[in-house]
Amino acid sequence: MFEASLAQSAILKKVLDAIKDLLNEANFECTDDGIKVQAMDNSHVSLVSLELRSDGFEKYRCDRNLSMGVNLASMAKIMRCSSNSDKVTIKAQDDNPDKVSFIFESSNQERISDYEMKLMDIDADQLGIPDTEYSCVVKMPSAEFARICKDLNQFGESLVISCSKEGIKFSTSGDLGSANVKLAQTTDADKDDAVTIEMRSPVTLTFACRYLNHFTKATPLSSQVQLSMSDEIPLLVEYRIGDMGCIKYYLAPKIDD
C-alpha cells in the first residue's frame, strides 16, 4: 500500500511542468523516506534528479518500496484536471502496482474526483553521481536565470558560462551577432534577488542553451536557483521545492574537439 497526500496540487503540477518536457517517462521510486526520480533525457545529455521527502507530505504511507513507471505526459494530463488549491492523494494498492490513482478534493470537500493511470515497465539506466566539491557555486534569482537563458537562446545554440570573483558572465554568439550578460555579486545575500558566488577557482564552461531553457521550467518552484560548476564536468542546476525536497538537473558540457 502506497498513499501520499499534498495539501495543494499546485506544487505537484509545478514539479511535473519542470520535468515533462525533458523526459517522456520515468520511474518514481517510493520508499519510507519519500519519492525519488532519476532519469536521463533521450539523448543522454541531461539528467533530472527529483526528491520529495516524506515529511513534506500532509500524509505519507509506504509499506514496501515500490517503483512506479510513469508516462509523464499522461500524468500531466491528469494533473491538469485538478485545481491548484485541491488536495491531491496518490494511491497504489499493490506492492507491484500496474496502476496508480490520483484523488483530487476541493478545499470545501464538495468536489471529489479520481483518476486512474496505467503504469509502465521502464528499464532505465541509473547513473551514480558522486558528491562533488565544485569550483564555483552561484546562487541567483531563478527568474533572472530564466530570462538570460531565454534572451541568449535567440543568438546561438551554445552558451558560455564564466564565473570568477567579479561575478558570473553568460555569453553566446551566432549569425545574428553576439550577446553577453554579466551579473555582479550583490551585497545582501539574504534577499530573494541576491546573487552570491562561492569560488575556489574560476571556471569557464560551454553548454547547449536548449537544455538550460528546459531547466528553467522549474522557475515557479523557487525564487532562487543554484548553479554548481567545475571545469570539464557536468553543470548542476538546483531548485528547492519548499522544505520538502529539490529538483536537480545535470548537463554535460560541450568540450572543444
Partner: peptide, 14 residues
C-alpha cells in the same frame, strides 16, 4: 565548434 558530451562519459552506470 565544441562537441556535446554524453553524461555517461562523466558518470558510471550503477
Amino acid at each position: 565548434t565544441p562537441i556535446q558530451n554524453d553524461l555517461q562519459e562523466f558518470y558510471a552506470l550503477v
